[in-house]
Computed example of a mutant assay.
Amino acid sequence: MQFNVVKTLSAAAVFLAFAGSAQAADATCEVNRPVKFGGMNWESNLVLVDVERFILEKGYGCETETLPTETLPALAALERGDLDVNTEIWLNSVAEPWEKAEKTGKVKRVGELYLGGESWFIPRYTAERLPELKSAADLPKFKDEFKDPEEPSKGRFYGCPAGWGCEVTSTNLFHALGLDDTYTLYSPGTGAAQKAALTSAYKRKQNVVFYYWYPTPLVGSMDLVKLDLPAYDAETHKCLTSPDCKDPKPSAYPENPVFTGVNTKFAREAPKLTEFFSKVAVPLPEMDATLAHMEESGDDAADVAQWFLKNKADVWTKWVPAEVAERVQAAL
């Protein structure tokens, strides 16, 4: 997710203020201000944030706000206290920045959501057309099969959306594999733009090579093949996650721990809410089912969050005390 300069998230920033205006009558929030969530623009985060906000508003009597942001600016904002909660941090995409932030004592890792994954993919129909294309290192031989419409002498590789933490890793890996002479590294402006471009190419059976992460509706709905990468090496990969990596070397992606981070001051002010965030965990099959419902229904994140709360009570009721669960279920 190329590294953007961290933006100052001030009070003047434009908030998506889906503020929870009505507090549960029989619950009193631990903080007397809105709880501030970082709002990323990928599906699992959008849904999980809306699930957590509904639980805080209806179960704990809190008001909430979401601040639209991106991975690295969100981490800086969490450290400053401009955000209270970052629901979904993909550790391998921000390993070095997270380590630095954690050492300040201003942020805390409090809950393990699931183990995600990342890879470089081609569609299966492309793999069948190009049976000798097995690994990312083979890509230079096939540049004409992935022609960049804006620079036809090169192929196009779809990297991570601009500003996301994974852009640093995919960019460093692109350079480490020596692809600069044969491919352009195309970083879509948003996750939605990336998904739209890949979906369009797939529907038209065009050859396309790209970075993506999972669980996601896109990976679940397409028949894809992973390109082989050199064996995972922890130190090599750590450099790949750094914007300042001077001499990147190729390494496969490891399994990616996805966790919740909170501002340490907020954790002291709101121990019950922090305990809730520490228990938020979604088994991968349940996350896959939720994102598949989102893809099939076309519903927005708020509607899918409602679907999750109504249909996955066996998952989320484990996160909260019984009386909180009762208040949430009464509000559905």
Rank of each mutant, 00 (worst) to 15 (best):
Q2I: 07
K7M: 04
A17N: 12
F18W: 03
A19D: 10
A27S: 13
V35Y: 02
G38R: 01
M40G: 07
W42K: 09
W42H: 12
W42V: 02
D50Q: 14
E52C: 14
F54G: 00
F54C: 02
K58L: 03
Y60D: 00
T64G: 01
T71N: 11
L72S: 06
A76Y: 09
G81E: 04
G81Q: 04
N86C: 05
I89T: 14
W90C: 03
S93F: 13
A95S: 10
P97T: 12
W98Y: 14
E99H: 12
E102C: 00
V107N: 01
K108P: 05
V110C: 08
G111Y: 05
E112F: 13
E118Q: 13
F121V: 05
F121D: 00
I122L: 00
Y125D: 08
K134R: 15
A137E: 12
P140V: 10
P140F: 08
K147C: 08
P149Y: 13
E150F: 14
E150L: 12
P152K: 13
S153T: 15
S153K: 15
R156G: 03
G159A: 09
C160T: 09
E167Q: 11
T169M: 04
T171V: 02
A176E: 00
T182P: 04
T184P: 05
Y186S: 07
T190L: 03
A192G: 13
Q194C: 07
K195E: 14
A197L: 09
A197Y: 00
S200W: 07
R204Q: 15
K205Q: 15
K205F: 07
K205D: 11
Q206T: 07
V208W: 02
V209Y: 02
Y212V: 01
Y212R: 02
P217A: 15
L218M: 14
G220P: 10
P230W: 06
P230H: 09
K238V: 07
T241D: 05
C245P: 09
P248K: 06
A252S: 15
P257S: 12
T260P: 02
T264L: 00
R268Y: 10
P271C: 11
K272R: 12
S278D: 04
S278P: 02
P285F: 08
A292Y: 10
H293G: 08
S297T: 14
S297Q: 08
N311F: 08
T317F: 05
T317S: 13
K318F: 05
E323N: 15
V328I: 06
V328G: 01
A331T: 07
L332Q: 14
L332C: 10
